[in-house]
Amino acid sequence: MRKTLGMAALAAVLAGGAQAQSTADEIAKYREMIADGNPAELFEMEGESLWKTPRGPKKATLEQCDLGQGPGVVDGAFARMPRYFADTGRVQDLESRLLTCMETLQGIPASAVVDGDWNKGERKTMDALAAYVVTHSRGQKIQLDLANPQTRRMYELGKRAFYYRSGPMDFSCSTCHGEDGKRIRLQDLPNLTHKEGAIAAWGSWPAYRVSNSQFWTMQHRLNDCFRQQRTAEPEFASEVTVALSVYMAATAQGGVLQTPGLKR
């Protein structure tokens, strides 16, 4: 069985990696090994079925959800997000826009997700829906509408939030993600202030994480970054999460999406 062979090979690869300066190459090999079996596909399948299933008090599907390309258009929608939506008067990332669709079309209150727990209930539903939507922008170029003044404003706030130091450890996002070639323990850290690093990060989330068998949206990724920064907890889909997403996506502008990604 290739599965078992794969595990043996991985063990050898990790043992070798211990002597190396960086595990990046080994992780890349592992990624290649299971690239055609990214378990994120299971979430995508579930998401597609949830998209088309009548749910909530209004017993409606999400097939009329407008992700910015018109009602029901999923293809290419994520590549242009976050974006300004005239109906809500806000710049929204994928997850906050899905909240709007769930609320307006299905009657599911946003609080079901915002006040929920990771990997449970409606937040888990959100994971699957995000996996479905981002798969339909895979291979497409990141193209934010930076001419939009609201998006531009969020970029400016996101950039400042990126450098905002606070809390008992005085950390900001830039502490870990502001320079090239840095790592925490053995984990390589992308430099999010430059195009290449921003593409590597924004272009590969949401992602399946092999270490805990979970599918994480960018909302989940950012939440855990702030946890490790020792700040208070950012609310799900709050302004800071959207602003930081705009900053990352804008820095990655023109890069190709590899979504959903596969992480250690």
């Binding site: 706030l157 400042r160 939030a161 905002y164 130091r165 606070s166 809390g167 008992p168 946890r227 020792r230 700040t231 208070a232 907890e233 950012p234 609310e235 709050s238 302004e239 800071v240 999460t241 602003a243």
Partner: peptide
Amino acid sequence: TREMMQSSFKENGIASKYRQLQ
């Protein structure tokens, strides 16, 4: 940004809201 770094966050356990002040 300073306003956003307050309004977007909530207290959770030992991670108090005052951690958002600089």
